[in-house]
Design a protein around this nucleic acid. Structure first.
Length: 515
DNA sequence: CGATTTTGACCAGCGC
DNA sequence: GCGCTGGTCAAAATCG
């Protein structure tokens, strides 16, 4: 356990660093109009954050680390650029040429800044993936007795798989395409055992890894890839303008019902697209996830007096991501946001957390379904593994039309459940809330429990559940990031008024129409 | 005037 | 086959 604590120590540090990376003042274009009446879960301007000075200091520290690690002398703040520009301007003659030169220089530095920021994110992503890998390996070494068991063989297999996938995962900057991969265009698999691995290991799988945003370098482009998923998007992108409505509809329909035929029950369990639902208390219209959405419909759902609003991502043409926002019927202070699909474009840092969370959760959900010979695994068991301290925090529904994982953030875990002194954690954030520091422990404990807990030890199902989770390092990371962002930065009931201080027309209009 | 929202209509899936 | 429901479309309305 001590070993694991040590790992958690650094785990916390890097998870939080990773979180913090998303707060770096990247020059995200301001044209990404934000719905300011949203419950701003992932805002990088959250007023609840403590003093900016501390953050700046933290950035400096992290910057130093990064410079050491990468050898890059990154310009991580726009302030640096603008300061330099100011100095240049102040010391230069008022000539137009000089000003143009300064502006050119400023533009150049800005673009370089953006590029380096992207690299920084990528490096951190890779670093974190490796870190998770190490944690898992050490976990593996810690439980040698389990190595002879069949279940552990499966986990070993997953580790092997993950080793191979590490390269791939590290290439996935923003588009965590595993769910996409696993739920689309997979070759038929007759064997139910190990089919998940087979699917991942197959050349087909490797051929169809979604290209990372950095490889394409075509922000906003529909992509020029061999990946059928991208091809589909490309087609969608290119033909949207002139294709008949029927075809468009069928594209989306086929997207929703991918052809996946590993086996009959497998087919039933996985051909439906995974959804990630987030429940949170908020008086605001909807939570802010950093993405840009356009409302395309509203419908009154059965059994709920509150209408459901349908949004699609408009950050890139042809982005297949949709989300539904609806108030809970029983508790109208709760907003339920359901995400579906994978972004086919790079996301701003503020959007990465939620996107990664939903993507990884969907991936976990689908890989979990695939790894169970009985189809979908016991959802409650998986939820308990995910969040043993708060079994109601994550629930998985296999009975819904689409497999859905629900992250219930309306009740934060009880800090008293975690006896660990806070000083044991290296928390670079100022005044972290207790739950903030505890979150990584939740997952660490969940993984540790997989072999220690008597309740789980004998359960092959739980081993499968754990394997599914460990096979997806992104999930825990992203989930931690998202939940800690929310718990750490937002007190919905208290902050809702703050978040609502600025309202624009569309929000109030939408709020009026929905609520 | 372009972008976005609204809203009624349409379509597919599902259960009976 | 029929009705119900969820999801989407697209013309009209609205806004900045």
């Amino acid at each position: 356990m001590a070993k694991f604590d040590i790992m958690n120590h650094s785990f916390d540090h890097h998870v939080l660093n990773s979180l913090h990376d998303q707060e770096l003042p990247v020059a995200v274009p301001e044209e990404q109009r934000r719905l300011v009446n949203e419950m701003d879960f992932f805002s990088d301007k959250n007023p609840s954050r403590d003093s900016r000075n501390v953050e700046i200091k933290k950035e400096s520290v992290q910057q130093s680390e990064l410079n050491v690690n990468t050898g890059l002398n990154l310009l991580t703040t726009n302030t640096t650029v603008s300061d330099k520009a100011t100095v240049d301007k102040g010391g230069s003659p008022p000539g137009t040429d000089k000003r143009t030169s300064n502006e050119t220089e400023l533009n150049r530095m800005n673009s370089e800044n953006q590029r380096l920021k992207a690299m920084l994110n990528q490096v951190n992503n890779k670093f974190y993936t490796l870190q998770m890998h190490i944690v898992t390996l050490m976990q593996q070494q810690k439980n040698p007795k389990a190595e002879s068991t069949e279940e552990t063989k499966m986990i070993d297999g997953d580790l092997e798989e993950r080793r191979r996938r590490n390269v791939l995962v590290s290439r996935q900057f923003m588009d965590l395409g595993q769910a996409l991969i696993s739920d689309k265009d997979e070759p038929p698999q007759s064997s139910s055992e190990g089919r998940n691995r087979d699917c991942y290991e197959s050349p087909h799988y490797r051929e169809h890894i979604p290209m990372a945003a950095f490889e394409s370098q075509n922000y906003g482009n529909c992509g020029d890839h061999e990946n059928p998923a991208f091809d589909r998007r490309k087609t969608d992108c290119e033909e949207r303008e002139d294709s008949p409505r029927e075809q468009d509809f069928q594209e989306w329909t086929s997207n929703k019902v991918p052809k996946l035929q590993c086996s009959k029950d497998f087919d039933q369990a996985t051909t439906r697209k995974a959804r990630v639902s987030v429940r949170a208390r908020s008086e605001a219209t909807m939570i802010s996830d950093g993405c840009q959405w356009r409302k395309y419909g509203q419908k009154k759902a059965k059994g709920n007096p509150c209408p459901r609003a349908y949004y699609r991502c408009t950050m890139a043409v042809g982005c297949p991501v949709r989300k539904q926002v609806q108030r809970c019927a029983t508790d109208q202070t709760t907003v339920i946001t359901t995400y579906e699909g994978q972004h086919n474009h790079p996301l701003p840092p503020a959007a990465m957390t939620m996107a990664s969370t939903t993507s990884a959760a969907a991936s976990m959900l689908l890989s979990g379904s695939m790894s169970s010979a009985d189809g979908l695994m016991n959802s409650n068991a998986l939820a308990r593994t995910l969040l043993p301290c708060s079994p109601n925090m994550a629930t998985i529904s296999a009975s819904a039309p689409f497999p859905t994982i629900t992250l219930d953030l309306t009740n934060s875990p009880n800090p008293s459940q975690f006896q660990r002194p806070q000083s044991q954690f290296h928390v670079p954030f100022p005044n972290p809330p207790p739950t903030f520091a505890s979150m990584p422990q939740i997952f660490g404990q969940a993984l540790y429990n997989q072999s220690e807990s008597s309740g789980l030890e004998s359960s092959q199902e739980m081993m499968r559940a754990t394997a599914a989770i460990t096979a997806d390092p992104n999930f825990t990371a992203a989930l931690i990031a998202a939940i800690t962002s929310i718990i750490g930065n937002v007190q919905p009931e208290r902050n809702s008024s703050n978040n609502n201080t600025i309202r624009n027309h569309s929000e109030s209009k939408m709020e009026d129409s929905i609520y």
